[in-house]
């Protein structure tokens, strides 16, 4: 299935979860300071491994940066 991951069209296997999407970004360490929204709703970290994505899902994976 195709999802929109941080604005880029990305192929993920059927049944992929939020965790799959986060892993696809190959982060150094997705620890504190990372948060995920799917279709404009926050997905708590505790649900990353169980929250399945639908075809066409819009996923934003955000991390802490300097600002403000």
């Amino acid at each position: 299935m195709k999802v929109l991951l941080n604005g880029s069209e990305t192929d993920l296997a059927d049944g992929a979860t939020v965790q799959t999407a986060v892993d696809a970004l190959d982060l150094p360490a997705a620890g504190r300071g990372v948060a995920v929204a799917v279709d404009a709703e926050v997905v708590p970290r505790t649900l990353w491994q169980t929250h399945e994505l639908n075809d066409g899902a819009r996923i934003e994976v955000l991390r802490a940066i300097q600002g403000g």
């Binding site: 970004l25 982060l27 150094p28 360490a29 300071g33 990372v34 802490a64 940066i65 600002g67 403000g68």
Partner: peptide, 21 residues
Amino acid sequence: VTVALRRIDPNARGSIVDVLD
């Protein structure tokens, strides 16, 4: 101390959260 959120940049080095913590 303020901090912001942006899309993941795989090339970013270091963690601001670690510095602030």
